[in-house]
Simulated assay, not measured.
Amino acid sequence: MNIGGGDEYDGRTRTSDYAPGASEGSRTTTRTRLPGNEAGGTGSRPPTRPGRSLITVVAVVVLLIAAIAFANRGGGGGEGGAPADDSRGRDSRAQPTAPTGEKPVKNSSDATIPSGFAHTEQGAQSAAANYAVALVSADMMKKSERREIIDQIYAPGQVDATLRKMDKAYSPKFLSKIGLDKDGNPAEGVEFVSRTVPVGTKVRKYNDDSARLDVWCTGVFGNAGKKSTNPVRNDWFTLSLALEWTDGDWRVQDFSQKEGPAPVNGDNRAAGAKEISDAVNKFGGFTYAR
């Protein structure tokens, strides 16, 4: 068999290549093919050997297996099979939410709001995400809890002015509009819900002393209860935060909020008031992100 294509060899003499215009049966050449060990004399062409193609395929497979084995060994850990630090040499843009190996915060686990963020761009992102959760939480509706939040996350020079601004924003009129009394409490048999989930962060500006970031968020907001006139609904919004590095941590200078971007609503069945209330009580919120 001629693997390279062309006429087949069956061990016998054959004729081919009739001359154009010649009558059928008139031969122009007579060609005989013999195996290599039978074709004597010099200049005889050796037959094609199928073994070469097979050897090539086997060699490629072996190289692929060796490459995979080497890659697996390189991605593993050091001594004793411990995981290696895979953050080195990896393009963070390819995996923006992958763990980097840095602990997000250094404060105690029982703290209400995380603190002690790293003095890095990632630390600023983590701080912004956590502060977004605190700034759009149910505790902001009550004056005493609101003061505690502002004291913890704002730069010292901005606390008093921010408290005055917040007290004005969370006026009795506004609280009544969302179904709460002047002290930020819901009616009897109703549970107020305001929980924020950061979806992503974007650094607009960063240096060692300050940072400006956007935090894209979703969340649930409203009152869960049969008598509620402000049912719990989903919301999408973006917080823009200006942070400064002060007293060994990132603190808020100012923030603003705008709607969206919001995806198309899905076909999810809306849960009843009791389901929402049970979910809020049974599912704890996260204390930090990223």
Rank of each mutant, 00 (worst) to 15 (best):
N207L: 07
V190H: 08
R212K: 14
D214G: 04
G219R: 10
S194D: 09
T201L: 00
L213M: 03
A187H: 09
G222L: 06
R195Y: 09
R204I: 13
S210G: 08
R204K: 15
G219E: 10
K205L: 12
W216V: 11
C217Y: 04
V197K: 03
V220W: 14
G222A: 11
N207F: 06
T196A: 07
S210T: 14
F221W: 15
P198Y: 02
N207T: 05
T218C: 10
G219C: 04
V190L: 13
G189R: 10
V190S: 14
A187T: 08
S210L: 09
G200Q: 07
Y206Q: 10
R212P: 01
W216P: 00
A211K: 01
V215Q: 12
V220T: 15
C217D: 14
D209I: 08
K205E: 15
D208E: 12
R195W: 10
V197F: 07
E191P: 00
E188A: 12
R212N: 10
T218G: 04
G219V: 04
S210E: 14
R195L: 11
V190F: 06
E188W: 00
S194K: 12
R204S: 13
G200L: 00
V199I: 11
T196L: 05
D209K: 15
R204F: 11
T218I: 10
T201H: 01
A187D: 11
A211V: 09
N207S: 03
L213T: 00
T196I: 02
V220Y: 13
V199C: 00
G189L: 09
S194E: 14
A187P: 05
F221N: 15
D209Q: 13
V199N: 09
T201N: 02
A187N: 09
G222T: 02
V193I: 15
Y206F: 15
R195D: 11
E191W: 00
R204C: 09
D208P: 05
V220R: 15
D208M: 11
G189T: 11
T201P: 01
A211R: 01
F192C: 05
P198T: 02
K202D: 09
N207P: 10
W216N: 10
F221V: 14
S194G: 07
G222V: 01
F192T: 05
G189I: 07
G189H: 10
D214K: 03
Y206C: 11
D209W: 08
G222R: 08
R195H: 07
G189V: 09
G200H: 04
G189N: 12
V197S: 04
N207V: 07
D214Y: 01
Y206H: 15
F221I: 13
D214Q: 10
D208F: 05
V215E: 06
P198G: 05
S210V: 11
V203E: 06
V215Y: 05
R195C: 06
T196Y: 02
V215T: 13
A187W: 01
T196W: 03
A211F: 08
D214F: 04
K202M: 09
N207A: 04
V193M: 06
A187V: 02
C217E: 05
Y206R: 14
G189Q: 13
F221K: 12
K205A: 15
S194N: 13
V215R: 03
W216H: 12
D208K: 11
G219D: 05
V220S: 13
R195Q: 14
P198V: 04
G222Y: 05
L213Y: 03
S210Q: 11
V197P: 00
